[in-house]
Design a binder for these strands. Sequence first.
DNA 1: AGCCCTACTTAGGATACGTCAT
DNA 2: ATGACGTATCCTAAGTAGGGCT
Length: 710
Amino acid sequence: MSSSAAKMSKTSRSSTKSDKKPSIKKEKIEVELKKAAAKSEPAKNGNGHVKVKAEAKSEPKQRVKEEAKTPVKQEAKNGKKRAAQADLSQSESPRKRKKKEEEEEVWRWWEEKKYADGRKWTTLEHKGPLFEADYVPLPKHVHFLYNGERVQLKSEAEEVMTFYAKMLDHDYTKKEAFNTNFFNDWRKFMTQSERELIKDLAKCDFGQVADYFKQKSEERKAMSKEEKKALKEEAAEVKKQYGFCVWDGHKQPIGNYKIEPPGLFRGRGEHPKMGMVKKRINPEDVIINCGKESKVPEAPPGRKWKEVRHDNMVAWLASWTENVQGNSKYVMLNAASRVKGERDWQKYEKARKLHRWIDKIRQNYSEDWKSKEMKVRQRAVAIYFIDKLALRAGNEKDDDEADTVGCCSLRVEHIKLHKSVEGVGEHVVEFDFLGKDSIRYQNKVAVEKQVYKNLLLFVENKNGEDELFDRLNTTILNSYLNECMDGLSAKVFRTYNASRTLQEQLDQMTDKHDSINDLVLTYNRANRAVAILCNHQRAVPKTFAKSMENMQKKIQDKKDAIADAEAELKKAKSDLKNLKSVAAKKKFETAENKVKKLVEGLRKLEMQVTDKEENKDIALGTSKLNYLDPRISIGWCKKHNVPIEKVYSKTQRDKFRWAIDMATADYHFFNYEGEIVLRDLSHLEGMDGGANTTQEADETQQDDEEEDDD
DNA sequence: AGCCCTACTTAGGATACGTCAT
DNA sequence: ATGACGTATCCTAAGTAGGGCT
């Protein structure tokens, strides 16, 4: 696309004021731009290390370990000693189990200083990843058939064959790409003679093999309690060995300590590589990362690592390259670990910091909608989408990946422009594209006129498969955003708008007189608003229809009960009228109460049904885990005396321990206290104190300005 | 200024597990 | 005690983002 840059008269700037702008209602916040000069950034060190102090408040928690306050330096020194002492096997005295033990093991890292040099650790020791057991050949009586005849495959080809057999029930095996890829790859594992024989997947019969595995899994399910328990204990023992490392002298849980087993690649959506064989990973494929002074993990007997390195600028303990796409895979720590928690915390602090800039940024991009530079206009519209609709950045993708897009990679075919749409409004953009994980994004949104005009311009003379933002990519976008605010990138808007939405919803919708149950319902509603914003979908649960039916039945029962109770009440009423006795009065009141109670119960049931219906294809977990500042939820729980367990599961509580500890009942997402480094924004403004330009003036301007582009 | 690589976060489906009604 | 069902956890794919190289 050539598109000679827009040459429009540079007229007075518009400042399309808030109005119906970003979907989320805007607060008027004073963004203090001044003191920018005053406080200059200390050492850069990227990451915009926001210096936040844990609300140093009181909280002299009883179980605070003394060492908790140990500054990093000293911590490092202690590291070795403690690592030795912790020694991966439990050196804990066996008698003090119980909660006490758990609690004592908590490392209150959020009360310590962070590394200022970008280092992730000083000492690190672990046992390396856990490998998958070798392949066990099928028993003699289980046969794979080709063309109706038994074929005894060599172990290599047999193993790959079982991968497919195990997936026979899955929809994947109905897809052509999956079958083709599988068959191609499978043949690579065959001997010459096997290859000569097996030439057509359609002639393969995996039935017996599939049944064999089904049977095995049945057997597993049917195991006795004791057997199951034994198995569980075994797994726990393995986890004890491999599931933890010693990180700066503290025992920390590892996330994925198990090496991924071989199998068939299950890409999402229409992935061109689905069905390809994902190979077994051997020690010789694995790079180990650990402390220089630490004991290097032992490779399995007779084997060796690909490499052992000591890089403390990264957080992974082991890595390998996966063969299907050539991506790196990493063994990293669990979300409850310090290194993950600290970054999570930082992420939310960054989002809170954005709150200080958001008005300014919105104003800027609104003005840029009229820039004479096409690139700037595209950037401005893209940021608007990212801000308003919580779209992802949209990095470019290769042809050998599923065809999905985000904001920057949107194509003309992904939007439709409508002058107006019934029930939506004027200047409507209709989105329909596949996003991450090939999840469909469909939305009709009314946008500012100027945005609409720009979009008309962007699609002009383009084909459906052309890029909507042909002058833009995520690198350009993010480097601009980074100029706006230190550390700002596209994804921060998702975090920001998600957390902001939760906070606002809770602020608005919470009725402090509600019961715990109703409060939780309110919370889930707020959570759902976020999930919808972020387009977090899920497959409708297989049991949905059935359980809905059950609930409807309950409702019917309740209604019947109400009818009966009402009849009783009616009778009691007339009795009372006739008899006017104390007993009759009492009876009447009882009947009245009964009806009231039943009606209340019905209301609750109906609410649950609505809730369930509205939730059937929406996943709340993703936003809860990744986008919502946990302190909002925890603060809210504390304020309204809702037990935290009502909102967070065990693992979630572990992950958000830092937040549970530090958030008080008055926590508010918008009250960012962090030491904020304000930067000179003048280069972005290109204008006076634009803030005060009046809207009316702009309006007039807007219309004529347009025609001339290109 | 595009490409590739690395490191890390975010994501939904599969499955294990716990709970509740029977 | 048992099975059905819903939720929590596990698994690993699929994103983002930034740096280095050409």
